[in-house]
């Protein structure tokens, strides 16, 4: 087999394995950790009879691994279980919300990725000038701020003082695209700002790293133009680190979305998960947790595979 295919196949198998272990970990995290779920649901004052009843109801009297396999099998069939709090099938609760979260993260990514890479390349090109230093301080500050701080500043300025945009991002099914975009403008701005800052710093570092290679000196000593050196000699080699940076940050975006959804009371997966945690609605926590984790694992896997594909040493093996 071509070494490239073998490497990619290896990563895919490894990714599938990781997903399995992650699902087991999340299951174990909620089911086996000290503290009885039934007790947790009912509180310390519950009668033993009530606890026993709910244990039976949840199937907690069966061994943990049987329940795990059951849960996993159900998950694969699309049966995510039933919420403890309101007895609604979890797949129904998630349906519209997953879409909302993906919309929010997708729009933020569509803005953040091109902006961050452009800024990163500019900062690397004008390394150690005032422009680079300014960008550095600004992005350093941006990554230092909690998302909710940026979110409330934006609300305070653009929603409360200027009345430009709504402070609460309410969306509903059947809303048309532009209205939806307008509704999520502040959460998107918040997410993008944080992600751009992270991604830009990493892009700059990746390019600066490549620019220090001896083959760049070779190119300079050939009398090539600056743009040819950057585009033809540095960029192809910076590609796999940059792909890596982009995907790491997309994954971060999916997670960063949790806090932003709460700030803007946005009906997404993150909000759902936080509510479920507060209510100790374990099946919902498991289901949302595994969806978030799976997205993250898949994105990392994509990064791995793309980075392999972008590496000339692997593509053209001996």
């Amino acid at each position: 087999m071509h070494p490239l295919l073998r490497l990619v196949a290896q990563r895919l198998v490894l990714g599938a394995g990781t997903l399995l272990v992650v699902s087991a970990l999340i299951f174990a995290g909620t089911e086996i950790l000290p503290g009885d779920v039934a007790q947790a649901i009912l509180g310390q004052t519950a009668t033993p009879e009530a606890v026993a009843a709910i244990r039976e109801d949840l199937g907690l009297d069966r061994p943990a691994w049987v329940r795990y396999l059951d849960w996993l099998a159900g998950f694969l069939r699309g049966d995510l279980g039933t919420s403890l709090a309101n007895r609604v099938p979890i797949s129904e609760m998630i349906a519209g919300r997953l879409e909302n979260t993906l919309f929010l993260a997708g729009v933020a990514a569509a803005i953040a990725v091109p902006v961050a890479i452009t800024l990163g390349v500019i900062a690397a090109r004008f390394r150690e000038t005032w422009l680079d230093k300014t960008i550095s301080i600004v992005t350093l500050s941006a990554i230092s701020m909690p998302e909710f701080f940026i979110g409330y500043i934006l609300i305070f300025v653009f929603a409360v003082k200027l009345f430009w945009v709504p402070s609460i991002a309410s969306v509903f099914p059947g809303m048309d695209f532009l209205d939806r975009l307008y509704a999520v403008s502040l959460p998107v701005a918040t997410l993008s700002l944080v992600v751009i800052a992270h991604m830009m710093r990493m892009t700059r570092a990746a390019i600066v790293n490549v620019m220090a290679s001896p083959y760049i000196e070779t190119a300079e000593l050939k009398g090539l133009t600056r743009s040819r050196i950057t585009l033809h000699h540095a960029l192809p080699n910076a590609l796999s680190p940059i792909i890596n940076v982009v995907v790491i940050n997309l994954a971060y975006l999916v997670v960063g979305v949790v806090v932003v959804e709460v700030v803007f009371v946005y009906p997404g997966m993150g909000q759902l998960m936080v509510d479920a945690v507060a209510k100790r609605d374990v099946p919902v926590v498991q289901a949302t947790g595994i969806i978030f984790a799976a997205t993250y694992v898949l994105l990392n896997l994509t990064a791995d595979v793309l980075a392999i594909l972008a590496n000339p040493r692997i593509r053209h093996a001996r």
């Binding site: 990781t18 272990v21 992650v22 970990l25 999340i26 995290g29 909620t30 950790l33 000290p34 503290g35 779920v37 947790a40 994954a251 999916v254 997670v255 949790v258 806090v259 998960m273 936080v274 479920a276 945690v277 100790r280 609605d281 374990v282 926590v285 498991q286 947790g289 978030f292 984790a293 993250y296 694992v297 990392n300």
Partner: peptide, 21 residues
């Protein structure tokens, strides 16, 4: 450690805090 890192930190913490006080 790789497996532990394969789960986003916030998600992992939320899962654990759903059960523990």
């Amino acid at each position: 450690i790789d497996t532990l890192m394969a789960i986003p930190t916030l998600i992992f913490a939320l899962v654990v805090l759903a059960v523990l006080p």
